[in-house]
Design a protein around this nucleic acid. Structure first.
Length: 516
DNA sequence: GGACGGTGAAACTTCAGGTTGCCTC
DNA sequence: GAAGTTTCACCGTCC
C-alpha cells in the first residue's frame, strides 16, 4: 500500500493533517466525537493559522452577531472563523450553520471540525475527511461507532467537480489501535439494517393514522397492511405482530381514539372483521401526528388540572414528560439539589403523579423538571448565555427544544379545544406565545407586531410603552430613539399611523437589533 | 502562628443528532 | 476512554 508522510508540527495527528490540508490548498472536514472536542480542535487549528483576511473578519463578525447577545460559543466560533476555521454541531443556531456551510462551499472556510451532524443530510464534500476518534460514549460505556457511520463520514471525502479522488483518514492513537481500526472499518462490512416498525410508539401512531384516514377499517385490513411491510418481510412472525396490534388497538380504544361498531354478540372472529373507526379526537390526534400516548397523557393532565391550581410550570413540565421532547436535559450530580429544591416549590402544581425516588422512571422525572425549569427561565426572559451557564444548553439546542415545545403546546391546545377545556386552552395559547418569543406575560401585547421580539418589546416596556394604545400615543421621534428609525416607521404603519416623517439618524448607542 | 496563594496530583464529571408533525402572519 | 474540571493536600511566603 502506498504511504505518505506528513510533517508533524503539533504532535497531534488530526491537527497535523488539517494543517497539511491547508498547505496543499485543499479543504478538510474533521470529525470529532463530542461538541467540546470539535470546538477544541477547531480552536487549536485556528491558533496555528496566521491570516488577517478582511472577508474572514467580516464572516467572523456575522457569526458573532447571530444572536442578540452573543454567547461564549458565538465568540469562540467567531475567533475561529476569522482564521478560516469553523466548528459545526447542533449547538449552533441555523444562521451560523448556514454561514459555515455556504462559506465552506465558496472556499472561504478551509476546515470544519464537526460532530456527526455534518455526515448525514448535508452535501458538503471536502478533499479530505479526518476522523479524529471513532469511539463514542454509549449507555454501555465507550464503544466503536457502527461501520455504516464510518462510511457515512468518510464518504464526504472527494469533491466530484474538483478532485479526481478524496482522502478519508482515521487518526489512530497507537499501533494496536491502528490494527483494530483497520480491521473494523477498512476491511469491515456494514451492519444490516433492521425495521423499527414494531416499536410500540411507532406502531400505535401508524395504526391510528391508518384508521383515521379510513385506509383500513378492520383488524384484518391492518394485519394485511403490516404483512406487506419490511418488518414482516424481515421477521416473518405474523403471530407476534397480530398480538402487538391487538394490544395497540385495545389501548387506542381505551383512550377513546377509536371505536368499534359492535354487535351485541360478538365473538373473536367477528372482532377481526368488525368495523373500527376513529373518534373525532382520535382523528385530530392522528392529524397532529403526535404519539397517541402523549395525546392521552395530555387528556389525563387536563382532567387533573380542572380541580387544582396550575401555572405555567404545570404545563411546561407536562410537555417535558413526553417522548417527543426527548432527549431531556440531564441533571448532573451538582445540580440535583437545585432541581430538587425547585421541585419541592412547585410539586403541588404538577399535573402528573410524582414517581417515588426508588422507581426507575425517577431519573427521567427529575430531568423533565430540569428541562421545564429551563423553559421557564426562557419565558422569564433569561438570555442564551445564562441558559448555557445554568443548564448547559447551547443556543442551537435551545431552538430545537423550543420548536418541539411549540408543536406540543399547539397539540395540547387542540386537544383542550376538542374536549371543551376553555379555560385551559386560553392558558395554553398564552404559554405558547410566551415560549415562542421568550417573554413574560406583560410583553404579550407588544410582540404581536411584526419586527418586535423579546428584546425590542422589553425596551418598549421599560420605556413605559406597554401596549398598542401607548404605542399610538408615542410620537415617531421618541419611538425611533427606542427602536431605530426603520423599525419605528414599520411599527407605526402596522398600528395604522402611517407617517412620512423620516426620523433623524440613530440615537447614540443604539444597538442594531436583529428580529428575534 | 496564621492567613493566603500557588502547585500538582487525584478524584470526579461528562460525553451525537434529528425527522416529521401543526398553524400562522 | 479521554479530556476538562474540581478538590485537596502540601508547601512557601508574608505579615
Amino acid at each position: 500500500m502506498p504511504t505518505k508522510k506528513i510533517s508533524s508540527e503539533t504532535g497531534n495527528a488530526a491537527l497535523d493533517l488539517a494543517i497539511d490540508t491547508i498547505k496543499i490548498g485543499k479543504q478538510a472536514l474533521v470529525f470529532a466525537n463530542t461538541k467540546r472536542s470539535a470546538e477544541k480542535v477547531a480552536e487549536d487549528i485556528a491558533h496555528k493559522i496566521k491570516t488577517n483576511d478582511k472577508k474572514l473578519a467580516d464572516l467572523g463578525n456575522s457569526a458573532l452577531k447571530a444572536l442578540s447577545t452573543p454567547t461564549k460559543q458565538c465568540e469562540r466560533l467567531s475567533r475561529c472563523v476569522k482564521k478560516g476555521i469553523a466548528f459545526h454541531h447542533a449547538g449552533l443556531v441555523a444562521k451560523q450553520r448556514e454561514l459555515i456551510e455556504d462559506n465552506f462551499r465558496l472556499g472561504n472556510i478551509k476546515i470544519i471540525c464537526a460532530t456527526p451532524t455534518l455526515a448525514a443530510g448535508i452535501d458538503l464534500p471536502a478533499f479530505r475527511t479526518i476522523l479524529k476518534d471513532l469511539r463514542r460514549y454509549t449507555s454501555r460505556g465507550m464503544a466503536l461507532i457502527p461501520v455504516l457511520e464510518y462510511l457515512q463520514m468518510s464518504g464526504r471525502a472527494g469533491r466530484p467537480k474538483y478532485d479526481k479522488f478524496g482522502e478519508a483518514i482515521i487518526a489512530a492513537a497507537t499501533e494496536n489501535d491502528k490494527k483494530k481500526l483497520h480491521e473494523t472499518y477498512i476491511l469491515g462490512i456494514p451492519e444490516d439494517i433492521y425495521s423499527k416498525l414494531a416499536v410500540e410508539p411507532v406502531l400505535r401512531t401508524y395504526i391510528l393514522s391508518l384508521i383515521a384516514v379510513n385506509f383500513v377499517n378492520t383488524k384484518k385490513n391492518i394485519l394485511d397492511f403490516f404483512g406487506k411491510t419490511f418488518w414482516a418481510y424481515q421477521f416473518m412472525d405474523m403471530e407476534k405482530l397480530s398480538l402487538i396490534i391487538d394490544k395497540m388497538l385495545d389501548l387506542l380504544n381505551g383512550w377513546e381514539f377509536i371505536q368499534y361498531q359492535k354487535d351485541d354478540f360478538m365473538d373473536a372472529d367477528k372482532i377481526d372483521n368488525s368495523n373500527v373507526k376513529s373518534t373525532l379526537l382520535g382523528k385530530r390526534v392522528a392529524e397532529l401526528y403526535i404519539d397517541p400516548l402523549t395525546a392521552y397523557f395530555f387528556t389525563a393532565c387536563f382532567r387533573n388540572a380542572s380541580d387544582k391550581q396550575t401555572n405555567e410550570f404545570s404545563f411546561l413540565q407536562m410537555i417535558c414528560h413526553t417522548l417527543e421532547i426527548r432527549p431531556l436535559l440531564r441533571t448532573g450530580v451538582k445540580e440535583q439539589e437545585k432541581v430538587q429544591e425547585h421541585l419541592l416549590k412547585f410539586s403541588s402544581l404538577l399535573l402528573e403523579k410524582e414517581p417515588s425516588m426508588h422507581e426507575p422512571e425517577y431519573e427521567d422525572f427529575i430531568n423533565s423538571i430540569k428541562t421545564a425549569m429551563m423553559l421557564q427561565e426562557w419565558i422569564n426572559e433569561k438570555d442564551e448565555q445564562y441558559l448555557l451557564d445554568q443548564f448547559n444548553i447551547r443556543p442551537g439546542e435551545l431552538r430545537n427544544k423550543l420548536n418541539i415545545a411549540d408543536w406540543l403546546l399547539y397539540c395540547s391546545e387542540e386537544i383542550s379545544r376538542i374536549l371543551h377545556y376553555q379555560y385551559l386552552r386560553k392558558e395554553l395559547v398564552k404559554l405558547r406565545l410566551r415560549l415562542k418569543h421568550g417573554i413574560k406575560e406583560e410583553l404579550l401585547p407588544l410582540v404581536r407586531i411584526e419586527g418586535i421580539g423579546r428584546v425590542r418589546a422589553r425596551k418598549l416596556f421599560t420605556n413605559k410603552i406597554k401596549d398598542l394604545k401607548a404605542l399610538k400615543n408615542t410620537n415617531i421621534t421618541t419611538l425611533s430613539q427606542i427602536l431605530g428609525g426603520k423599525v419605528a416607521l414599520s411599527v407605526k404603519k402596522q398600528i395604522g399611523q402611517e407617517t412620512k416623517e423620516i426620523p433623524k439618524g440613530k440615537r447614540k448607542g443604539q444597538l442594531s437589533l436583529e428580529k428575534y
